[in-house]
Every structure is written in structure tokens, then in C-alpha cells.
Design a protein around this nucleic acid. Structure first.
Length: 582
RNA sequence: GCCCUGGUAGCUCAGUAGGAUAGAGCGUUCGCCUCCUAAGCGGAAGGUCACAGGUUCAACUCCUGUCCAGGGCACCA
């Protein structure tokens, strides 16, 4: 509808321009928006206000001339000039009713569009280090990324969802060591478990599973840890020495067993948890595979050939400042180890090389300083950095009562996503995470979030859906007739205030989906659904649906069935279920 | 110090490419179930849109500065 009116305005302006009454600017952008107040019609344009100056006319006079030159449209009932020079469009009743037919015909596809024209988008999100279970903070990026992916899907993009698995590097070694030490404990070896290793109980569980599988095969030759290692004062150095000791005394193969077991167990846990929240990935992309395939070395070599690297203090530095970063960044350390950044370069280069038109990353806001170097590296490799889009999600700072909950995976002190879902339900959790703009800081009290679970807006929306299902259930129970095809011929009977309001609200849905996808803001959809549910509940309370008058009854049922469809479609995008009973 | 985000009702937050009287939920308060689920509805109260300038016919929205809050500034991941 908006594009239809935009076209009408374009034609009118063209006529004025052809008649020499107006010179149009090159970058003419016609804005038509839904009005907030129905006294201003259904849609309005401010085009006359924007063009008044260049046209040398008073805004209202120009608006009148534009209105006079508008082509006739079957959809438009009346055009008014109002306020400082707005052109207000009043649509025919018929055009409002048409949305119900459209919804009935499109079903679960209502709201979908082909704006994306099948363009391939890779969206990477969550990508939490596989060193422990997901916690509440990770849930936000998960729910947000999944919703953005679904929105893009609905808008006709070909979406691939990917989880980048950081399965290489020191953190994984610390994880393997942690599991091994717990395993030693279970086998009766006295161990003073380092404070900076992973503390969580899940480490013990993995160790127990390992012991059940391999028995005592992974014990070191000597019963005690060597004194020269345990004596190291610096905790981080001692940890590294312990890792080295584990590798030495176990041998590469046995060490790999522990490493692989720990990784597999934790990934399984993460995947299970995400799937229980309705979040699925097409790819789990291994960081280690980038090293194994030589892609990391290839990228480093290409950068070196291109003169993008230089050697200083024994390390290889990437000239990030050349691309706007604050300082140059190390790619290969003095000790020969590649940094996380090195594999990140290869990863992002590979994303674009895989043929995606666009790669979207959902990152925690704490990574924002990382953006210039990654984009810089892509540019240095000859790629267009604009193809990489980074969406930042602000931290969720948790409070338990008035006390801030400190979260650190290594200390094992955190609230898991699983705990949260168990308390408030996965639907509430998913909805809750996306009801705020992602750039907005999220401070919330866990106790409050849990205790308010019944007040969570998600139940309000789901309840509207369940109520409609219930009405249809009653319809069957009472043996009343409802023939959708006949109902569609009686839509003109919908004339009560809430009905007319709903006929204005429903057509907005596809526009909301498109706008939310374009701006990567699923909260727009969440708010829309809440508003729609509010209108429905008001309608429900003031009007009966299962009435004697067959024609009106059917028209009303057609309307609420359409509402149900839109709620269902919208909740599906947000990953929330639409129960038929509550 | 530099760089990101925010600062809108008592609280938590919306405010759609600047637009016509600033919205919602919770909380407070007054009402509504012989009636399709009261997990609901209706009414009332509640605002110098952090502050000061500027651009504009029009600024919560854009620009500059100030104040406040959170985060980031590693040869860590």
C-alpha cells in the first residue's frame, strides 16, 4: 500500500514537472508513512513540506497542487491537505478488508517478501568459546541472532546460520587440563586444582564420563605432579607448565583424547541447549580447521607478500593503522604462535570466499574495538569490507536482588542459560531478550525476571492466540457454521471501532517485518505483536464473536482467524511458540 | 586520555530515513466475570524527552560542547 501511494505521488510530481511547474531534485525520496492518528487518514506524506523551498511555494499550496494532479486510485477514498502541508490519504473500506483475504490466502507466508531477492547472507552468532555451558549473557546474542536470521529469511534472503567454534588455542588447553586434573582426582591422585583453571562442576562430569570410558589409561607415570611445576609462583605460568606436563606425560594421542572429549561434550551441551530454545545452525565452523587446511598460513603469506606485515621484536605485525585502526596488531607472536586475530582474518576471508553476498556477525559489544582490524585485514586482502556487517549486542548485566552477579566462565560462578529457561520458560526467555534494542544495555534483576514470569508480555501475546483458538473450539462444540470463503464476502459488515482499528493494524505487519529485517531490529516486531494483541484483547472484551447473525459472525471469525495467523507468523520469527491452549 | 553505547513517566523500555496533541508495560488508583479462558478489559494520575547552544517551516530525532552511566583500548581468547 505504501509503495502504491508512493507511485501515485511520483506520477503527480512528474506531471507537475512536465508542466514546468516544479523542478524535481535528483535524489527525490518520497516518504509515505502510516499515520498515528486516524483523523489524519491512513497514510500521509510530507513531500510537499520537503519540496516547498525548491519549488518556491508555500507548503500547503504545493500540497494542494500535488493532490490535484494525483491519478485516481480505487484504493483511495479521500485526499486531504492538513497541518503545515501534509497530504493525508484516506483509504477505502474495501482496501482495509482486502488484507483479510490476503492473509487467508498467504497463510504462514503472510509478511514474507522477496526484498532479499535470494541474496546469500551468512549470519554468524553465539560462537561462544566451547569451554563451558552457555550463560544468561550469551542468551541475548543467541536470541537476537536467531531472530535477525529469521527476519532475513522472511524477506527472501538465503540465510546460512553459522557458529564459529574456537577449538584451537590456549583456552582449549586449559579446558583439557582442567578435565584431566579432575580425572586424576577421581583416580585418587592428590591434586591441588589451580584457581585459574575451569572450576565448574561440568568439568567433573566430563572427567567422570572419561573415566567410565577409558578407565585408568590416562594416568601419568609418576603418581604426583612434579614439584618443579607446582612450585611456579605465577599462576598463569604454572597453568602453562601444567599443560606442558600433561602433554609430555600423556603423549600426543592420549592428550588429544582428553582435548577432543572435552570439546565434544561441551559442544554437545551447547547445541542441545540452543536447540531446546529453537535455535539451530547450518554450520559449526571449526577454527582448528583453518589451521589444518593451511588457510591461516595462506592469509598470512598473502598479507606478507602484499607488504601488509612487518617484523618487530620478533613478532609479525599487521599494518592495521593503514586502515583506520588505532594501532598495528600482532598476527604471529614472538614465540611463533599465531594470535586469535590471525585465525579471524582467515575465517572472515573464507566467509566472503564462500560466495556470500554479505556476512553478518553478531558480537558482544566488548568486541567493538576489534572491528577496524578485521575489516582492515579484509581490505588488505583485496576484499570489500562493506560486505562484512557487524552487529553489536550490549551486555546483559545481571543482578540477583540488588547484588550484581559476577560472571566468569573460568570461576564457574554464573547463571546458565539452562537455569534461566528452566525458571522462566524458553518462550519467555527468547521473547524477553529481543524486546529491547540490542544497543540498549540490559540491567535486570534475575529475581524480578523470574518472579514476573507471568507478567511477561510473551504470555499476553500467546494468550491472544490461545483465545482465538478457543473461540474456534467453541464454534465446533456448538455446531455453529463458519465458512471462510463465504465470510470473505461479508467483510463489509466489520464496522465497529475495534474492527476498523484492526483492519488498519493488520496491513502493517509486512511493513514491520521488512523494516525490522532492514534495520536488524527484531524488537520492532515484538512491539508490534504486543500492540496487535492489545487491540485483540480489547475487541474480545467488547464484542461477542459467536453470535446468531451468521453473516456478521463469519465476518468476525474471518477477522480473528487473520489475527491469529499474524500472531503465529510473528512469534515464529521470534522463535516463540504459539500454543492453542493456555 | 582516546573510542563505542546509552541517558524519554516512580521502575523497565518503545518512539519507524527530522513531522501534526511524546507512547507501552509494571507500579499507584477507581471500576468490569449468570457472557467465546479475568494469564483479560475500561478510566484516572504520572513528562523542563540529562543540560546548553546550533541547523530547519518543523528537533526526543541531525550537529557541537558539557555532565552522568556501562563497555572497549594486549605478542588474552
Amino acid at each position: 500500500m505504501r509503495s502504491h501511494l508512493t507511485q501515485l505521488l511520483e506520477q503527480s510530481l512528474q506531471r507537475l514537472s512536465d508542466a514546468g511547474a516544479l523542478r524535481l531534485p535528483e535524489d527525490l525520496a518520497i516518504n509515505v508513512e502510516r499515520t498515528r492518528d486516524s483523523a489524519h487518514g491512513d497514510l500521509a506524506s510530507n513531500i510537499a513540506l520537503l519540496l516547498a523551498k525548491t519549488a518556491g511555494m508555500k507548503p500547503r499550496d504545493l500540497a494542494q497542487r500535488i493532490a490535484d494532479h494525483l491519478p485516481a486510485s480505487a484504493q483511495v477514498r479521500k485526499v486531504e491537505i492538513a497541518g503545515p502541508g501534509f497530504i493525508n490519504f484516506f483509504l477505502t473500506e474495501r482496501s482495509g478488508q482486502a488484507v483479510i483475504e490476503t492473509i487467508h490466502a498467504a497463510g504462514e507466508r503472510f509478511g514474507c517478501s522477496d526484498l532479499g531477492k535470494g541474496k546469500k547472507i551468512l549470519i554468524e552468532f553465539v560462537s561462544v568459546n566451547p569451554t563451558g555451558p552457555l550463560h544468561v549473557g550469551h542468551g541475548r546474542g543467541a536470541a537476537y541472532g536467531a531472530a535477525v536470521a529469521n527476519l532475513l529469511d522472511a524477506c527472501g534472503y538465503t540465510v546460512t546460520r553459522e557458529y564459529y567454534v574456537n577449538d584451537a588455542g590456549r583456552q582449549m588447553d586449559i579446558l583439557a587440563l582442567s578435565v584431566w586434573l579432575r580425572y586424576l582426582e577421581l583416580n585418587g591422585t592428590p591434586v591441588s586444582f589451580p584457581g585459574n583453571a575451569y572450576q565448574g562442576d561440568y568439568i567433573r562430569e566430563i572427567a567422570a564420563g572419561l573415566r567410565a570410558r577409558v578407565g585408568a589409561d590416562l594416568l601419568p607415570d609418576a603418581p604426583d605432579l612434579p614439584a618443579e611445576v607446582t612450585a611456579i609462583a605465577d599462576p598463569e605460568e604454572r597453568l602453562d607448565a601444567l599443560i606442558e606436563f600433561a602433554k609430555q606425560s600423556l603423549g600426543a594421542s592420549a592428550y588429544r583424547t582428553i582435548h577432543a572429549t572435552a570439546l565434544a561434550e561441551i559442544l554437545r551441551d551447547i547445541r542441545t541447549e540452543l536447540e531446546s530454545m529453537n535455535i539451530r545452525f547450518d554450520n559449526w565452523y571449526s577454527e582448528q580447521s583453518l589451521f589444518d587446511s593451511g588457510k591461516v598460513d595462506d592469509c598470512i603469506e598473502r598479507l606478507r607478500q602484499g607488504g601488509e606485515l612487518y617484523l618487530e621484536n620478533g613478532a609479525d605485525w599487521f599494518r592495521a593503522t593503514k586502515y583506520g585502526d588505532e594501532k598495528d596488531r600482532v598476527v604471529v607472536r614472538e614465540n611463533g604462535q599465531k594470535t586469535y586475530f590471525a585465525s579471524d582474518i582467515a575465517y572472515h576471508h573464507d566467509k566472503l570466499a564462500r560466495g556470500f553476498d554479505r556476512a553478518i556477525n553478531v558480537w558482544g559489544a566488548d568486541h567493538h574495538g576489534y572491528i577496524p582490524r578485521v575489516k582492515g585485514a579484509l581490505q588488505a586482502l583485496g576484499e570489500d569490507p562493506e560486505r562484512l556487517e557487524i552487529l553489536l549486542v550490549q551486555f546483559a548485566v545481571l543482578y540477583r536482588g540488588s547484588e550484581k552477579v559476577q560472571m566468569s566462565t573460568r570461576s564457574g560462578n554464573y547463571v546458565t542459560l539452562r537455569d534461566l529457561c528452566a525458571e522462566v520458560g524458553k518462550d519467555a526467555a527468547r521473547f524477553f531478550y529481543v524486546t529491547r534494542r540490542s544497543e540498549q544495555h540490559l540491567d535486570f534483576d534475575l529475581e524480578l525476571a523470574k518472579s514476573q514470569s507471568n507478567d511477561n508480555p510473551v504470555y499476553y501475546i500467546q494468550y491472544a492466540h490461545a483465545r482465538i483458538c478457543s473461540v474456534l473450539e467453541q464454534l465446533r462444540a456448538r455446531n455453529l457454521e463458519y465458512r471462510p470463503e463465504r465470510a470473505l464476502t461479508n467483510l463489509s459488515l466489520l464496522s465497529a471501532a475495534p474492527e476498523l482499528a484492526l483492519l488498519r493494524t493488520l496491513p502493517k505487519y509486512p511493513e514491520v517485518v521488512s523494516a525490522a529485517a532492514a534495520s536488524r531490529e527484531p524488537h520492532q516486531l515484538a512491539f508490534y505483536l504486543r500492540d496487535l494483541a492489545t487491540e485483540f484483547h480489547g475487541y474480545y472484551n467488547s464484542h461477542q464473536f459467536l453470535i446468531e447473525d451468521v453473516s456478521l459472525r463469519e465476518a468476525r471469525l474471518a477477522l480473528i482467524v487473520a489475527i491469529r495467523q499474524v500472531i503465529r507468523n510473528g512469534l515464529a520469527i521470534l522463535g516463540v511458540s504459539a500454543p492453542e491452549q493456555m
